[in-house]
Amino acid sequence: MTPAATTFRPPHSVVARHTTSEPPLVRRALIGIALVFLSLFLFLPLVFVFTQAFAKGLGFYFETLRDPNAWSAIKLTLIAAAIAVPLNCVFGVCAAWAIAKFDFPGKNILLTLIDLPFSVSPVIAGLIYVLVFGAQGWLGLYLNADHPQLPGLANWLNDHNFKIIFAVPGIVLATIFVTFPFVARELIPLMQAQGRSEEEAARVLGASGWQTFWRVTLPNIKWGLIYGVILCNARAMGEFGAVSVVSGKIRGQTNTIPLHIEALYDDYNFTGAFAVASLLAFLALITLGLKTWVEHKNATRNETELSP
């Protein structure tokens, strides 16, 4: 760059408007194309869910939701999310602490392994738990009722009628698997970017490890953590493929909300299916709203920190 260019530089916006923008016609055409594409693929389906849900009126809507099978599906979904989200949250914080605050060999391999569940098809995610815990599976062979190799455990499980596959524990496990990376993926880059100097300062000044975490780290990663939990929860409540492999789909017992939607749809009760689906669509909208709000919070926080 020539010295002249460095000494006089008009604000970007002034130049930008003249030389780095498109003619109004092109601009409008591009906005038009984008909006038509998004309307067709996003707005229309969203509007469709809610119109179909209320197609037979409010009475039918609430009747569908009050149905015992629907109620049991809602409860099961809440249970699965209530177990999967906190566990993955603790894991995410631990993984981010180890990866961001310390150096150790094999870090990149660990990062890739944490991402693995994202690249595994939901159907395969369900399949692997059937292979481990199913009657013909890895552990199943050890606990097989006819010739158990671990008779004590097998008897205990039998006495308590404890099943994993085609039962609630399998559903919880599959949900944990598909939501495994969400919190970790939000926290790791965030904590890596923040570095370790603040925590080191706290420690040198005499804070204990826990104090450092609660008073220094946690306030710094708060929004990232909330963001991760929101995404994790949305996926946990909406998972379909993995859960449908391990659930056995017993109505009123092992059906989650998405599986109940499928059951209603297969019964040609379309309005009922969309009524239950509207719950999850509403959850999706709340998720998007919270996400936008958290991002906005984050952006304003960064601005106030960066400005002198």
């Binding site: 996003l42 909406g238 909300i257 998405p258 939607i261 999850l280 999706a284």
Partner: peptide, 12 residues
């Protein structure tokens, strides 16, 4: 709304 496909459950 661009993130809707991430947030909307696949069955829906």
């Amino acid at each position: 709304l661009v993130d809707l496909p991430f947030a909307l459950p696949t069955a829906v």
